[in-house]
Amino acid sequence: MISQEIPYSSHIIVMPHLRVQNANAISSPLTHGFPSITAFMGLMWALERRANAAGINVLFNGVGVICHNYQEQVTQSGFTQTFNLTRNPVDKSGQTAPIVEEGRIHLDISVLFAVEAPDWSDDEKQETDIAALHAIMQGMRLAGGSFLAPLAGQAAQSAPWCIAYESPEVEPEYFKNARYRVLPGFALVERSALITQKLAEIQKQNPEATALDAWLSLVRVNWHYNAAQDTWQHDRTNGWVVPIPVGYGALGAVCPPGTVAGVRDATVPFQVVESLFSLGEWVSPLRLKNAQDVLWYPSSKPENGVYRCHNSYRAL
């Protein structure tokens, strides 16, 4: 668990019931089923840059996501599922192009942004800016997916709104009433503390067990036979716990701009990284005590080669 001071944000913007088509369902080399939280962090930073370019004076501090519905594009027959893939057009030589596995998912989500907006003491300015932010975001991409217009009759349900409060002390009360507006749905939070607990449990029987052993044990369903009751039982007692990528770890030193061929942007430094994994849990918004429970914040430490997102949710 990474502890870091959470920046104070006077406003929480809620973009409710966003419809996303064909987002990337493969969130890392080991996981699939929902876009990585880093994709939402990238959306936040891209939206901030576009907002500032459009003259909207806002600073984005954190992002959260609540999923209302999803439809992963996979086969529905049998125990083993496979992605629905597309056949690409033939290449310039007339040969059949190879199939590159792409996982796609359709989403109905609400996205929350923690922002600091010094100009929003004026309610009219706040309303105008939030509407502009919503319009800007409709032309962007989320994990490669496209935002779709609301369905007929759902425009009011999809209109953005804001939670504003004067100080951190009163924020939980404001957020408590706002939780009902994002039901039904499930919020993605971090539960990395479960790894420490599971590791201590496993090491009682295997002192050489590592955090990886604990993580693998938690992301699967472990069945065992109870001879006393003559039944098979599983150890899934921690809720809807899932493996998630939470950032990237460096595999080497930072390379100066222009020294690596084939990079996307040769004007910025380059570093080879790999995915960092943790545990997440999908929880009901009613279990969130305040906005910090659902919001994810960047906690990059370039000097250590760690580029990570963190969330401060604590189970009741």
Rank of each mutant, 00 (worst) to 15 (best):
E201I: 06
T196Y: 12
K176M: 10
Y180G: 11
L251C: 10
S192G: 08
P184T: 06
L142R: 03
L218I: 01
T231G: 01
M137N: 06
W215R: 14
V182K: 01
W232G: 13
N226R: 12
D213I: 03
E208Y: 13
W161P: 03
N206T: 09
E171K: 02
L218T: 03
I244N: 00
W232A: 15
L133K: 02
T231I: 07
R236P: 00
P184A: 08
D230A: 14
P245H: 01
E124N: 12
L216V: 12
I195C: 04
Q138E: 12
Q138H: 14
I195P: 06
I195T: 08
W161Y: 03
V170T: 13
T237M: 02
L133G: 05
M140Q: 15
A143Q: 03
A143V: 05
N222G: 05
A193G: 08
A131F: 04
Q205L: 03
A164N: 07
T237Y: 07
I163F: 07
A209D: 10
P256K: 08
A253P: 05
V170S: 08
L194A: 01
V189L: 04
C162D: 05
E127N: 10
P184M: 09
R181C: 14
Y248Q: 08
L183R: 11
F175P: 07
T231F: 02
D123T: 09
L216R: 11
T210Y: 04
Q205P: 00
A227D: 08
L133R: 05
E171T: 04
V182Q: 05
A187Y: 11
L216W: 06
F147W: 13
T231H: 04
A214V: 09
M140A: 13
G252S: 01
E124L: 11
A214I: 09
N226H: 15
A250V: 01
R191P: 00
R220E: 12
A211W: 08
K204W: 06
E169P: 01
A155F: 06
I136D: 13
L216M: 15
W215N: 00
L142Y: 00
P207F: 05
L148M: 14
T196S: 14
V241L: 04
Q203K: 10
Y180L: 14
A200S: 09
A187Q: 02
D235W: 00
P168N: 03
I163H: 04
Y180H: 10
L194R: 01
S217L: 07
L216F: 12
G247P: 02
T196W: 11
C162L: 10
R181P: 05
A155I: 08
D129Q: 04
L251N: 15
E166Y: 07
R191E: 02
